[in-house]
Amino acid sequence: MQAVQDLIAEKEEKISLDDVYHEPKGGETPLEAKLAMTKFKLALEYLKQNQKESALSELDDAFRYDPDNYLIRKQRWYIRHPEKFTPTIDLTWQQQQLEIERADELADCGPDGCKIPGTD
């Protein structure tokens, strides 16, 4: 909040946020990145129509293309665990969930890729 106020008061020229949703690690190709964003946007459209299962399917596909995208991961969490996002966002739970999922992802990798966390 203070950083935004400093920006408005022209005390700062630029601010950066600590909550980074996506920092590409270079593993995905430009095509995979575009496919991930297309799937993500389609999922949001399904959510607008309250089609949660279709939205989750698209988000899972998006996650396959871009597993380091935190925004995709958070949307998957939001659909599966809405109580962790309302009335307030449980950041501690998110950090714990991220650690659990990262460990599961490392453990469940094979020649056909890695298992997507939260899917069976």
Results as ranks from 00 to 15, higher is better:
residue 36 A to I: 01
residue 69 N to D: 09
residue 69 N to W: 06
residue 49 Q to Y: 10
residue 56 L to E: 12
residue 55 A to K: 02
residue 41 K to R: 06
residue 33 A to W: 02
residue 46 Y to T: 03
residue 61 D to M: 07
residue 55 A to G: 01
residue 58 E to K: 12
residue 61 D to I: 03
residue 70 Y to E: 07
residue 70 Y to T: 00
residue 56 L to P: 00
residue 46 Y to M: 09
residue 63 F to L: 02
residue 58 E to C: 06
residue 32 E to N: 10
residue 66 D to G: 06
residue 55 A to I: 08
residue 61 D to H: 07
residue 61 D to R: 00
residue 70 Y to P: 01
residue 40 F to Y: 13
residue 52 K to P: 01
residue 41 K to G: 03
residue 41 K to W: 06
residue 33 A to R: 07
residue 42 L to E: 11
residue 67 P to F: 04
residue 37 M to P: 01
residue 36 A to T: 04
residue 45 E to W: 06
residue 42 L to V: 12
residue 54 S to D: 14
residue 33 A to P: 08
residue 35 L to A: 10
residue 41 K to M: 12
residue 54 S to F: 14
residue 65 Y to S: 08
residue 37 M to Y: 04
residue 32 E to Q: 11
residue 38 T to M: 11
residue 64 R to N: 02
residue 52 K to D: 09
residue 61 D to Y: 06
residue 57 S to D: 05
residue 44 L to Y: 07
residue 65 Y to I: 07
residue 64 R to S: 07
residue 43 A to D: 00
residue 62 A to T: 10
residue 53 E to P: 00
residue 32 E to M: 11
residue 35 L to R: 11
residue 60 D to E: 14
residue 65 Y to G: 04
residue 51 Q to M: 12
residue 63 F to I: 11
residue 66 D to Y: 14
residue 66 D to W: 15
residue 45 E to H: 14
residue 68 D to G: 10
residue 69 N to C: 08
residue 38 T to L: 13
residue 35 L to H: 07
residue 55 A to T: 05
residue 34 K to A: 14
residue 40 F to A: 05
residue 62 A to R: 04
residue 51 Q to I: 05
residue 51 Q to G: 09
residue 40 F to S: 05
residue 54 S to C: 09
residue 57 S to I: 11
residue 58 E to W: 03
residue 52 K to W: 04
residue 57 S to E: 06
residue 70 Y to R: 13
residue 37 M to L: 06
residue 60 D to I: 13
residue 60 D to A: 07
residue 59 L to Q: 00
residue 42 L to T: 11
residue 42 L to P: 02
residue 36 A to V: 03
residue 47 L to R: 10
residue 61 D to N: 13
residue 40 F to H: 09
residue 70 Y to A: 05
residue 37 M to C: 02
residue 42 L to A: 13
residue 36 A to L: 00
residue 49 Q to E: 12
residue 40 F to C: 03
residue 49 Q to R: 04
residue 53 E to Y: 06
residue 60 D to K: 12
residue 66 D to T: 13
residue 36 A to G: 04
residue 63 F to V: 13
residue 65 Y to K: 02
residue 40 F to G: 13
residue 59 L to M: 03
residue 48 K to T: 08
residue 42 L to D: 12
residue 39 K to R: 12
residue 44 L to R: 09
residue 34 K to G: 06
residue 62 A to K: 03
residue 69 N to E: 06
residue 46 Y to I: 02
residue 68 D to T: 07
residue 43 A to M: 15
residue 59 L to P: 01
residue 43 A to L: 12
residue 64 R to A: 06
residue 43 A to R: 14
residue 36 A to Q: 02
residue 68 D to N: 09
residue 39 K to N: 12
residue 36 A to H: 00
residue 52 K to M: 03
residue 45 E to N: 15
residue 56 L to C: 02
residue 47 L to Q: 08
residue 45 E to D: 15
residue 41 K to V: 10
residue 59 L to V: 03
residue 34 K to H: 14
residue 38 T to W: 03
residue 50 N to E: 15
residue 44 L to I: 05
residue 52 K to R: 06
residue 43 A to P: 05
residue 64 R to W: 02
residue 36 A to F: 00
residue 36 A to D: 00
residue 69 N to H: 14
residue 50 N to Q: 15
residue 67 P to I: 05
residue 65 Y to Q: 07
residue 54 S to W: 04
residue 52 K to V: 01
residue 65 Y to M: 07
